[in-house]
């Protein structure tokens, strides 16, 4: 089966920022993204869990964007500007997709 190389941007960020991030991705014409709730984890500030939080302030979400390499910087720069002061992680990795025209 023929596969096509693409870039996968994974943004783990605080839930209150989510709408701003997805609005930005819409404006940047990212062809698509997926939002995933994050259950818990451990970082520089210690461990945390989604369970039993009374507010969105302590929750994290993950946004996954798959895009072509030629669009990577155009998406990554503004995304980084938006989330750089927030708690979270941004990673970029190489992935293979089956339907290149979707990204």
């Amino acid at each position: 089966m023929q596969m096509h190389p693409k870039k996968r941007i994974e943004i783990i960020v605080e839930a209150p920022v989510l709408h701003r991030l997805t609005d930005l991705l819409d404006r940047l014409d990212a062809t698509g993204y997926t939002v995933v709730p994050v259950l818990g984890g451990r970082g520089r500030g210690g461990s945390w869990t989604r369970e039993g939080l009374a507010t969105d302030a302590g929750r994290m979400v993950m946004v996954v964007v798959v895009t072509g390499e030629e669009r990577l910087d155009a998406i990554l720069q503004p995304v980084f500007s938006l989330v750089t002061r927030q708690i979270g992680i941004v990673t970029v990795s190489d992935v293979m997709v089956m339907r290149a025209e979707h990204f």
């Binding site: 605080e14 839930a15 209150p16 920022v17 009374a54 507010t55 969105d56 302030a57 708690i87």
Partner: peptide, 16 residues
């Protein structure tokens, strides 16, 4: 509820 979420947006450097 409301203010912690607002503070994450307005003053992200503050320790939640």
């Amino acid at each position: 509820i409301a203010v912690p979420a607002a503070m994450r947006l307005a003053l992200p450097e503050a320790n939640p």
